[in-house]
Write a protein that binds this DNA or RNA. Structure first.
Lengths: 352, 352
DNA sequence: TTTGCTTGTGAATACGTTTACAATTTTTTT
DNA sequence: AAAAAAATTGTAAACGTATTCACAAGCAAA
């Protein structure tokens, strides 16, 4: 590996001149500049980013700490962040905190140690709780989950509105005992629950705690919670899950119990995954604007990197309700995709 | 941020001593060591990894360049790599090359510039082609895709065997016109095709080029290829896709054409995604041991980091055939999950 | 001619570590 | 008790770059 010193010697100039040619900041005689550039090409010299970082005390790396890399929601965001960062000449150090507060602090420390320019982060509730205690050297943008007291940039979904839409959609289609399964780890659970409850209340329906489950961020948790709900004395006629993992668990349980969707029970969820459209019936979901979330978060972060005094912003994006078969109107007169008759559906529903 | 100098001054020792205490390499008088450690805690000193990296010319970062971060196969591997790296005190710089050779070289250069300890990489065919031309300073482990001339570590699936299994399974279940859709970008296509052809030949069946599609790495490509196959004068009675993205495309096409699976046509694929088990009928797949791939690749890489002279190894892992409904025996006498009668199935099949 | 400004260049320093080497102290051996 | 060996500590030189400072040369204005 050629260093800047090698280039300087080969070009017969000083190190400083080479640096100046490369950084384009200062004046260098055109003829010298050309000679340097030639040598650079010849030796295929590439500046050492580590040295540059150490000297200039700033790097071109962003950190991204997600809760679960296997969750399509986060992979989609990662992709968007990486693209946006790439465009601005930044690269991304991606870490998977696995919904564990310990791993989160560990990775935040790593970011510190690596001297990243800034970090995009979706924290667990615990980390949010003592958020001001951990004073970080770098700017940070929160995604997906919010923290009270707005001295930090955030990009998130309008969770209240989204759940409200989802619940209202079910209510409009005739469902009345709507269960909800939330993810304990995410702070979004509270907001989502709020939207859910408000929707019920505006239909003058009671909020039944039996129908609300707060569970771990695991497929199995969704599965178990669903079985619990089904085994209750008054099972629900619809289930709303807070993310695709829980939805997959719920769907598995419903399949196992041989409950027809939506005849016996409806299923709606957050996050529009590939499979949500491919299962039959396809799942009604709130599609989150993951590309926009990732892109906006990166932009906010880079703006703050450029100007650390800028006031913090909270960007709230709207989800999109994608209506599919899994929440079709109860006892509707329209033809069903699978050509089952209305009668059979009513009968089936009554049996349930 | 406290530096090692601050610690040294506060503890009344030299910088070197602090470094020795921290690195645990050399002897330091217990009493001094304790004092240093105390100051470290007090100032909450953390070593600057950038400076350490520059000085020692080695970092604790691994690079991971995947072809498509949204592909569950790669996210699963990423997760495994990250876990394995984490255990050994390494962190992971994850880059998404998007099946683009340009991005690949760009990221390889970045890895160079960032002075990573080593890189795990799934290259496109183009990059494989001029692999020896790009001489890299760091050790590299290839995953998923192989390169001829074994001077490089690799971890991959036994693609020939896997496709052979998948195809044979279809043949055993009575399917005879088996189409296959491969991904142009991946070098695995060749091996997979080989397994497919060999399986056909061992059944004395011809290899019909009309039934083989090589397409881009896109859902739409899988969709279009499937429609092409269906519209041919002699449509297939089974489709094999080389990855989950293509499978999703194929499934979308089959759904659109209202073709019952597996009555009218069977569908099998690589990669066991969440949804492969959730759609109905569930999809028969070759499950790749992604955790093992990621873990093994990381181990190989770290071994090579430790000993650059070690001879290159090629680890070939076996996939697991997961048999599900989408490839159920044709005209079988066993009861079907959905209780359609045998007669209706035969009739339907003959119409198709 | 002097003064002042602009432009171009190199020497030297700093960024925060690690480490070879030297200097000093302690322990062991004879 | 002296000599040798071992253990402990500090000094100083890297690692590769960016940047400040000083200086020189060229040129225009006074």
């Amino acid at each position: 590996m050629a260093t800047i010193k090698d280039v300087a010697e080969a070009a017969g100039v000083s190190i400083a001149t080479v640096s100046r040619v490369l950084s384009n900041r200062s004046n260098v005689r055109p003829e010298l500049r050309e000679r340097v550039l030639e040598v650079v090409k010849e030796l295929s010299y590439r500046p050492n980013l580590v040295a540059r970082n150490l000297r200039s005390q700033q790097s071109k790396t962003l950190g991204l700490i997600v809760s679960d890399i296997r969750n399509p929601f986060f992979t989609s965001i990662s992709r968007a962040v990486e693209d946006a960062a790439y465009e601005q000449g930044y690269s991304v150090l991606l870490c998977n905190a696995d919904e564990s507060p310990e791993k989160e602090t560990l990775y935040l420390n790593l970011m510190q140690d690596e001297n990243v320019a800034g970090v995009i982060f979706s924290p667990t509730r615990q980390t949010i709780a003592n958020f001001k205690n951990l004073h970080l050297e770098f700017p940070i943008v929160l995604i997906d989950r919010s923290v009270k007291g707005g001295e930090v940039d955030m990009v998130m979904l309008d969770n209240v509105s989204a759940t409200h839409q989802l619940t209202t959609h079910l209510l409009e289609n005739g469902y009345r005992r709507i269960a909800a399964i939330f993810d304990t780890a995410a702070s979004t659970a509270l907001e989502r629950r709020k939207g859910y409850e408000e929707a019920l209340q505006s239909y003058n329906l009671p909020v039944t705690t039996n129908l609300i489950k707060n569970v771990a961020h695991k497929l199995e948790a969704g599965y178990t919670a669903t079985l619990d709900l089904l085994d209750a004395s008054q099972p629900p006629d619809a289930i709303l899950t807070a993310n695709s993992l829980l939805c997959a668990g719920a769907l598995t349980a419903l399949r196992e119990r041989n409950l027809a969707i939506p005849d016996k029970i409806a299923l709606v969820s957050f996050d529009d995954t590939t499979w949500a459209a491919l299962v039959q019936p396809a799942i009604t979901v709130i599609a989150q604007p993951t590309d926009e979330i990732g892109k906006t978060a990166t932009e906010l972060l880079l703006q703050r990197v450029a100007d650390s005094k800028r006031s913090a912003r909270k960007v709230i994006l709207q989800g999109q309700l994608v209506i599919r078969g899994s929440s079709a109107p109860r006892f509707s007169l329209v033809a069903y995709e699978d050509n089952t008759s209305l009668i059979s559906r009513v009968k089936a529903a009554n049996q349930g």
